[in-house]
């Protein structure tokens, strides 16, 4: 019985650790919900633990966010929810835990990608700029140019009521 209690305690502690700052699951209906919910411009960046340029991207976004806390950003990890501890560790390293973080659910990855963009083949990082008032969306593959983000932010902040 003592062993049972010890195991239960261990089990609880594992799940408690996982529950801290847990990114929400990104399902096949998450993107359409985001579009509905977000009234103003937002930047959605797809990234993965297995993508070296993504780490550079997160580092750069961490600094950018620090200097521009009005940047409305959603980060979506395309990794499995089983890697949530690794994801959180990395986000914490770049001070990005406070923003809207998501992680791909266990739905088929091709369906998840398709729900965002049928023309996205899985290249990472991949970013989507959503303009104010749903005026438009543009996609960028590869590490973002900070000046481009700031210019987009300026344009879209100015027209924000």
């Amino acid at each position: 019985m003592k062993t049972l209690i010890l195991l239960l305690t261990l089990l609880c502690s594992c799940y408690t650790a996982n529950a801290t700052n847990k990114p929400a699951l990104f399902n096949t209906d998450s993107y359409s919900q985001l579009i509905e919910e977000k009234k103003h411009a937002f930047l959605m960046v797809m990234w993965s633990l297995d993508c070296p340029p993504c780490i550079k991207e997160l580092s750069s976004l961490g600094l950018l966010y620090k200097q521009n806390p009005d940047l409305n950003m959603v980060l979506v990890s395309t990794d499995s929810p089983a890697r949530i501890d690794e994801i959180n560790k990395l986000l914490s390293k770049f001070d990005l835990l406070k923003i809207d973080n998501r992680v791909f659910s266990t739905e088929p990855v091709q369906r998840l990608r398709y729900s965002i963009d049928p023309r996205w083949y899985g290249e990472l990082p991949r970013s989507y700029f959503h303009d104010n008032h749903r005026a438009g969306r543009s996609a960028v593959t590869g590490i973002l140019n900070t000046d481009h983000v700031l210019s987009w932010l300026k344009t879209n902040t100015e027209v924000t009521p």
């Binding site: 297995d50 340029p53 290249e123 990472l124």
Partner: peptide, 8 residues
């Protein structure tokens, strides 16, 4: 030309 991982 892309600074990204195609995984492909």
């Amino acid at each position: 030309q892309v600074d990204a991982c195609p995984h492909h």
